[in-house]
Design a protein around this nucleic acid. Structure first.
Lengths: 136, 136
DNA sequence: ACAATTGTATTACTCCATTAATACAATTTA
DNA sequence: TAAATTGTATTAATGGAGTAATACAATTGT
C-alpha cells in the first residue's frame, strides 16, 4: 500500500492517511479482507511516529472501514464501507449546504452553481485519467 | 448593526463577525458608505476583546469589503464586494472540487450530485424565507 | 492647541489539536 | 513456552490559532 503524505500540508498527517485509505477502499484498490501494513511498518515507510498511524487506523476502525486485532494486524472490514443511501446522502448534505451558502453570497444562481459543478467535474475526470496513466 | 456571536460555536469569534458582515453586505442590509460600529463599541456590545473585532475588520478590509481610517472609523467600501466573475469563479472552485472528490468517494455520479444540490437548494430557500419572516 | 475618538501594532497568554515517548496486552509463530 | 509481532493505552511535549493587554498614531471636533 503506497501512501503519500506531506508535512507541509496544513491537513494533519493522520487525516491524510484516513483520506487516502478511504479512497483506496472506495476505488476497490483495497478490498474487504485485504491487510493494511502494521502500524510500525507504515510509520517507518512514511517516516512518522507509529502513534500517528495508530490514530488513523483507530479512526478508520470507528468508521467501520478497518478492523484491528492485537497480534494479527489490521484488515479492511468485510462489510467495507457499504453505507446505505441515507447515510451517504447525509454525509454529502453538509458540504453541499456550505457550498450553496458561499455561492449565494458570491451572487451565483443555482443554475450557475450547477454549471460550475459540471465544469469542475469534467476537469477533475481529465486529471484523474492522467494520474491513472502515471500510476502504471 | 446587530451581530450574534456564540462562544460555544467552534467557529472563532472573529470569523463569525466576518461571515455576518459579509452576509449583511451581500444582502444589502449594509450598503457601500455605511458605517460599521467602532471597534471598541462593537467589542463592548459583544462582550469580547476589541482586538478580536479589530482582526475581523482588518480581514474584511483585506477582502475589500470594509475601509478603515484612523480617527474616522470604518465604512463599507464603495466598490462593495463587487468581485469580477473570474475572482468569484475562482473562489468557488476549491469548495466545488472538494465536494466532487467526496461525492465520488461516496459513489455518487455527477448527475446524482447535481440532483442533491438542487434538493438542498430548495430546502435552503425555504428555510431562508422562514427566517426573513421572523426577522421582522 | 487639546482632549476625545478611532484604528494600528506589538507582545504575551491560553487553550487545544497534533504528534511523540513509552510502557502494556494480546496474538502469533517457532 | 518464549520470543517476536502486533495493536492499545497513558502521558507528555510542541506548535499554532485565537484571544487579550497594552501602548502607539492619526483624525476629529471643540
Amino acid at each position: 500500500m503506497r501512501l503519500h503524505i506531506s508535512t507541509k500540508d496544513p491537513v494533519p498527517i493522520y487525516q491524510q492517511i484516513i483520506t487516502q485509505v478511504k479512497h483506496l477502499v472506495a476505488s476497490q484498490r483495497l478490498r474487504p479482507g485485504d491487510e493494511v501494513p502494521p502500524i510500525r511498518v507504515l510509520a517507518e515507510q512514511l517516516l512518522i511516529n507509529p502513534n500517528t498511524v495508530a490514530r488513523a487506523y483507530r479512526e478508520l476502525e470507528s468508521a467501520g472501514i478497518l478492523t484491528s486485532k492485537k497480534g494479527s494486524g489490521t484488515k479492511v472490514s468485510l462489510k467495507g464501507n457499504t453505507l446505505g443511501l441515507k447515510e451517504r446522502l447525509k454525509e454529502l448534505s453538509a458540504p453541499v449546504d456550505s457550498l450553496l451558502v458561499q455561492a449565494h453570497q458570491l451572487g451565483f444562481t443555482i443554475e450557475e452553481v450547477i454549471e460550475i459543478v459540471r465544469e469542475r467535474n469534467s476537469l477533475f475526470r481529465a486529471l484523474q485519467k492522467e494520474k491513472d496513466q502515471s500510476d502504471k
